[in-house]
C-alpha cells in the first residue's frame, strides 16, 4: 500500500491511500480523515473520504498549501497503526431484485450492454461463476456491505462487500452510460455496489430496486431530516423481498410511516479478517436480535 499526495489545484489536496481497493485501504483512508477532522486545522473547509483515497478542500489564504501538505502527511503513520475498529450502524435495505422498473430500463438501453440478449443479473451471475440468478442474489444479499464512499450525486452510497477478495463480485460498467436509471436502483460497477439516490444517468449494472428513500431534498421524512441517510463507514444489509412486501413497504413510505431498521454495531477489521463469516453473522444478529 503506497500513499500518494497531490494538489488538486490551489484549493484541494488529494490523497490516494492505495491504487487498488481493499478494506485495509478503506480503513486507512477513514482513519486519516477522522484524524484530520479531529485536528480541527484552520483553513480546511471540507474533508471527503472515498473508497481508497480522500480529499481535503482548503482556503490557501488561511493556510499555505505546502504547510497543509506536510501536516497531512504526519497523520499517515498514526493511521497505519490506529486500531482498525469503528463504532458504526448497520442499516437494513429491503430490495426487490429483478424488479419490473429496472428491467424495463435495462431493456431500453440493451444496445449499450455487453450482453444484449440477457439481463444485467444474468450477465453478472454468469461472469462471476454462479450457475443461476438465484445463487447470485444469495451471494449479493448473503454478506453485509460497507459504505466506502458517499457521492457522485447527493447521498449515493458506494458499497463494498464484506467478503474475502476471491468472493468479491466484479462486473464492468455498461459499454456506454445510460441516460436514465430509476430512483433507488441497486446497481453494480467494478467491485462496488451503489444505490442511486436520484433518477438520472448511470453506467452501473442494475440488479433491483429498494422502496426505501435514501435522500430527501426537502428534509421532510422523519429519518431524512439531514437530507441524507448514509455516511461513509455505515454497514448495509440488502434484504431480498417479494413484490407484495415491496408494495406494502412503498405504501408505508408514501404514508410517511416508514422507518428503516438500524442497529448500532462495532466493526473490527482484525476480527473480520480472522473470521469473516462469524463476524458477519454477529453484525446481522444486531439487526435481527
Amino acid at each position: 500500500m503506497k500513499t500518494r499526495y497531490s494538489f488538486g489545484g490551489d484549493e484541494h489536496i488529494f490523497v490516494e491511500v492505495d491504487e487498488e481497493m481493499s478494506l485495509e485501504a478503506f480503513f486507512k483512508s477513514l482513519s486519516m480523515t477522522t484524524a484530520v477532522r479531529n485536528a480541527k486545522i484552520d483553513g480546511i473547509t471540507e474533508i471527503c473520504p472515498a473508497n481508497a483515497s480522500f480529499q481535503v478542500k482548503f482556503d490557501p489564504d488561511v493556510i499555505a498549501p505546502d504547510v497543509l501538505m506536510e501536516r497531512l502527511k504526519t497523520f499517515e503513520v498514526a493511521a497505519e497503526n490506529a486500531e482498525k475498529t469503528i463504532d458504526t450502524r448497520i442499516i437494513e435495505m429491503p430490495v426487490l431484485y429483478n424488479d419490473p422498473w429496472t428491467h424495463e430500463t435495462l431493456m431500453r438501453f440493451r444496445e449499450r450492454h455487453q450482453d444484449p440478449d440477457g439481463t444485467d443479473l444474468e450477465y453478472a451471475a454468469r461472469i462471476n461463476g454462479y450457475d443461476s440468478v438465484e445463487k447470485f442474489i444469495e451471494a449479493h444479499s448473503g454478506a453485509p456491505w460497507f459504505v466506502s464512499m458517499v457521492g457522485f450525486v447527493a447521498g449515493l452510497p458506494f458499497t463494498y462487500q464484506l467478503v474475502e477478495r476471491a468472493r468479491q463480485i466484479e462486473v464492468p460498467k455498461y459499454l456506454r452510460p445510460r441516460t436514465d436509471t430509476p430512483k433507488q436502483t441497486v446497481g453494480y460497477g467494478g467491485c462496488f455496489g451503489c444505490v442511486y439516490s436520484v433518477r438520472g444517468a448511470g453506467g452501473y449494472q442494475m440488479f433491483g430496486i429498494t422502496p426505501m428513500p435514501i435522500f430527501d431534498p426537502k428534509g421532510e421524512r422523519s429519518y431524512l431530516k439531514d437530507l441524507f441517510l448514509f455516511r461513509p463507514g455505515d454497514i448495509i444489509r440488502f434484504k431480498p423481498i417479494d413484490r407484495e412486501t415491496y408494495d406494502a413497504t412503498l405504501a408505508e413510505v408514501e404514508a410517511g410511516r416508514y422507518e428503516p431498521k438500524i442497529a448500532s454495531v462495532q466493526f473490527s477489521l482484525d476480527a473480520f479478517n480472522a473470521d469473516p463469516e462469524g463476524n458477519n453473522a454477529k453484525l446481522l444478529e444486531a439487526l435481527d436480535g
Partner: peptide
C-alpha cells in the same frame, strides 16, 4: 488495480476536486 475497471482511464472511484 483491483476495483478500478479494465479501461486505462479508470481508477478506483475517488473524489473529484472542483475544477478537476
Amino acid at each position: 488495480p483491483f476495483g478500478a475497471g479494465s479501461d486505462p482511464s479508470n481508477i478506483v472511484d475517488s473524489c473529484y476536486p472542483y475544477g478537476s
